[in-house]
Nucleic acid binder design. Structure first.
Lengths: 216, 216
DNA sequence: GTTCTGATTGACAAAGCAGTCAGTCAAAGG
DNA sequence: CCTTTGACTGACTGCTTTGTCAATCAGAAC
């Protein structure tokens, strides 16, 4: 499910491998969710977005429920890989790691309008379907644990006496609230502006290491 | 639309006044949105929740679209009255006012699970429906302007050299992110715990006036 | 070329939905 | 008691949607 995200756009062959087609249909589902919202996302519309017949969607995913579940899993996995990759590329310094995680959360691939809108669609249905808590609960757990660990090390090494659990929570809810803002605000809201907001929160928690513009 | 939110629960008469019935149906819509999500909210289910026939829902609201639009307007108005009322009851001191607004955002009437879930349903559809952006956006404008004003006065009078726009934004996105957390977290999340998170953010912005537990 | 396998299509069935409407019922006013 | 008015019901319609399936098609293996 995670390999070969890229789809060959040269001249689409009539048939594709199972994995390629599934990925293409999941991407079409994300686009449709963003364009029409969860409630008006139909199999026919997903198929039309992909330029395929609606029967094929069910051939590959069996039911609409499973298509949406796999779409959510795809988004969750993409999100996880994004921040874990950014963290792996950052140095051992906790301030750099925290900065890397903040930047990762607003990377174009993650907080592109269509991606955010798709996430938001799922949030709206979350409370009524265990599906989402399954897919997202684990992801959030790993993210939180990592963030708290980084904040704890930054607190210790940086000489702050801040509660790392509180700091991590502030950073996380600030990020989530900013995503929601980007979705619901009428006036456009750039990723750069969003990141400034989260960095401001980081600067409040760790003023010796962060400014609203980034690392000190 | 704003008067007489209370419904007489003694022994339901066969007929009710137009306004009472509309309010009852809007409340049933909120419950249904929370229980089943936006996409599976049907007129029949709303009617069943209210113990009425589905024809009556259309008699009072004409279309499903209008029912949902009025439900959102009802929620937005309820929200606005809640924080404006809390603000009116607070003293002239900006720190007290900020505290009042934070408490208002987590008052049981506002962040009850069903209310939050209903809001979340609308967020998920917002980007694809201009109807909802209006209702959600306008509420935010007045709220933001007020919050920024309070932060500006607190910054001045309290001797902080903090950018009040940034502080207000931090408080707001922290609140919104915490709401989202309350919706999507698997582990339960009490309003008291939520308020602690936002007060921690306030304490970071205005440490001489706030602690995570409340006003100093 | 032939065959085999798996992807793909589109016609179809079944179910659920919003919205319509003719008629019922209850309360109020005469 | 009679009439009027407005709330209310439930059967019905037409449309949309999900899901099924037999037939078709393209590419790979031989």
């Amino acid at each position: 499910m995670t390999e070969s995200r890229q789809i060959d756009q040269g001249k689409p062959p009539r048939t594709m491998s199972r994995e390629q087609r599934r990925t293409q249909l999941i991407e079409a589902t994300i686009s449709t969710l963003a364009a029409r919202g969860y409630s008006r996302t139909t199999l026919t519309e997903v198929a039309r977005t992909a330029g395929l017949s609606h029967g094929l969607v069910l051939f590959h995913f069996e039911t609409k429920e499973k298509l949406l579940g796999e779409t959510l899993a795809y988004l969750a996995e993409e999100y996880r890989q994004n921040w874990q990759g950014a963290l792996a590329n950052a140095g051992p310094d906790p301030a750099e790691q925290l900065n890397a995680m903040i930047e990762a959360d607003f990377a174009p691939a993650i907080c592109a309008p269509a991606r955010l809108a798709a996430w938001c669609s799922f949030w709206g249905e979350a409370q009524s379907r265990p599906l989402y808590q399954e897919a997202c609960g684990d992801k959030d757990d790993a993210y939180n644990a990592t963030l708290e660990g980084i904040c704890a090390r930054l607190s210790n090494e940086g000489g702050y006496d801040r509660n790392p659990v509180h700091a991590a929570r502030i950073i996380r809810v600030t990020t989530e609230g900013t995503w929601l803002d980007m979705m619901t605000m009428v006036t456009p809201y750039s990723p750069a502006e969003a990141m400034t907001t989260v960095r401001t929160a980081a600067a409040l928690c760790f003023p010796n290491h962060f400014t609203p513009e980034g690392l000190k």
